[in-house]
Amino acid sequence: MSFLTEGLYFRKISEFEDKTEGEFQHFGPLQEQILKIMNDSGMLGAPVPKVKAKSLTEELMNFDKGFNFIQSWHKSEIMSRKMWSEYSGIENNIDGAIIVISPFTMDILLRKNLLTSWEFKVVDYVNDKSRARNAFFTKHEDYRWEKEERICIDIKKLIFGNKNILPEMACLNSMRNYNFRGGNFPFVKDIFKYKDENGFIVDIPDLNKSVEGVLVPNNCSSDFESEINDILISKKYNIKVKRVNVDSLENINNIIQ
């Protein structure tokens, strides 16, 4: 329910359970060719061994993991029992909910409020992450059932908009309205809020006007349903909770109409 009360939570990709997140082919044929050209030209002084170059690119890849934060969505028009099970734990907790929003609407909200350093794309599924060309929008085939579309924010530009080195995410609180090179730094706004050591909240304006549905299991408790409806009213959402059969293959668009 934090989505409804606070906004979008972005988690550091290096803290994901899947430790291949953020990995890609950091030293492939292209990098080998570049290294050979640089070594042959003497540009680097003493030749750099391939093993050392590969180690350096791996360090850079792992460094980058600490600066990229993800917000994930399941992209499907059909109800998914597996998603309810994996991410709501419905077998042990009947009080769970899913948020419905159009990808088109989400893209508009992001473009209006996050002017740089973000991407919103469908994830590609691959057999070998170590051969993938993209670090943050590829996952192993084992996760294909997730049908994920994700938002990725690279916070490195936030560092350049701050007088302090970024020792932890808490310093986002000191970055509001920072003046950068004669203008407003386009990414630093009050919509960023520190959440914990692994992530932050982006409280996007007009989110309450954009959510199309909040769905809960048919057998959820009345107290839980009432609690969410109270939040929707207090936050001025123009919708009410709808109960659904999580085992159905019903089209979600038909449910929220």
Rank of each mutant, 00 (worst) to 15 (best):
K12C: 15
R144E: 05
N177K: 12
D206Y: 14
S130I: 04
G182T: 03
N62Q: 14
I34G: 05
V51C: 08
S80C: 12
T57S: 15
T57M: 15
S210R: 14
D124Q: 15
G89Q: 10
N39P: 01
F136D: 10
E91V: 05
K19Y: 07
D107Y: 05
E86V: 05
K12V: 04
V48C: 05
N184K: 14
K240R: 12
L215Q: 02
Y9G: 10
G45V: 07
L172A: 11
K139S: 07
M43N: 07
F200G: 09
Y237S: 12
I239A: 02
Y143L: 06
Y143P: 07
K82V: 12
Y194L: 11
N253K: 15
P167Y: 11
R81Y: 08
K54Q: 03
K121I: 03
N164T: 00
T105P: 02
N177G: 03
I34K: 10
R111V: 02
R150S: 09
W84Q: 02
N245E: 03
N229H: 00
D40N: 15
T138N: 11
H140C: 02
D124T: 13
Q25P: 06
L115S: 06
I231R: 10
W84C: 03
N198A: 15
E141I: 10
V241C: 00
I255C: 04
L30H: 09
S85P: 04
G7L: 08
C220Y: 08
S76A: 14
E23H: 14
S210I: 11
R111K: 13
D64A: 14
H140A: 09
E17V: 13
K242E: 02
L166S: 04
L60V: 13
E197T: 06
